[in-house]
Design a protein around this nucleic acid. Structure first.
Lengths: 138, 138
DNA sequence: AGGGATATTGACAACGGTTGTCAGTAGCGT
DNA sequence: ACGCTACTGACAACCGTTGTCAATATCCCT
């Protein structure tokens, strides 16, 4: 019942801003460095808290890099309300640049395969990593 | 040049055995507990070392669970030399039971999507998690 | 067999990313 | 203004995993 009210803070705005300014996925650490670098004091804990909340609210996409670190990016070009449909990402492992990809075929394939094996309550993870054209020749 | 020779040890055999006995994916911790439980003293570090080496040798498959923990399983029914082709897994998030799945369509789809976006040096992660038939009604 | 070179072991510490703690601070409704 | 309380952030804890290094076990060689 008691929906606790949300407050606007300088740090929260800074996180939103930095995310909006980024053109790709950022790790919490990178975001933290970015903010401090631009003279915007913030605590690492606070960065994590905002990212976690944004992720829960579906405002940011989260991908888990091969090394296990999480990277975040504002969800969809226009995070205007609508709870973004299921999609995956093609992420540059060098600069974080990413492209959203949708693969209805893959989605249905995954569910079909799982169902055929008698699995229920199915979910899946799918990320594609590579090096974007900007880093072509190494 | 100098290929250092490998030695057979009780611990190494124990790890292989436990992996062979398991019918699904095991985390390093679970494997460690299993071995100690059956009165087979071993160090956690050693377990990790063997798993890492097995993974490097392609003798075990590794999946990263949604919570980030790694789980291991002997590769293919018969790990008879041949360097197993690329495949993915359908894993029960309750008991670790898993099924190997192959999706040529998905593989090519992933590469095509990446190539279309100008990405090179492409790799991808894909895991499907669910609850196997044994745990159907919760 | 015996012995020596060295791969392996394992208790322990360190690491890296992330989350919990909690007193202090700052937004917001009144 | 004032007070309630969400938010902040330095710090410690956590968890899976890897590094360290002296002690040990294995294997090759004679």
């Amino acid at each position: 019942m008691s929906e606790t009210r949300r407050r606007a803070t300088r740090q929260g705005a800074a996180v939103d801003e930095a995310l909006a300014a980024a053109d790709g996925f950022l790790t919490a650490q990178a975001l933290y460095d970015e903010l401090r670098g631009r003279g915007d004091p913030i605590g690492l804990t606070t960065v994590y808290r905002h990212l976690r909340r944004l992720a829960e609210d579906g405002a940011v996409d989260v991908v888990t890099r091969p090394d296990g670190e999480a990277a975040y990016r504002l969800c969809g070009p226009a995070s205007s309300g609508a709870p973004e449909q299921h999609h995956h990402h093609l992420v540059c492992r060098i600069c974080g640049f990413s492209v959203e990809i949708e693969g209805p075929e893959v989605e249905s394939w995954a569910h079909r395969v799982a169902a055929d094996a008698g699995f229920t309550n199915v979910s899946h993870t799918l990320e594609i990593f590579g090096e974007c054209s900007r880093h072509a020749g190494r």
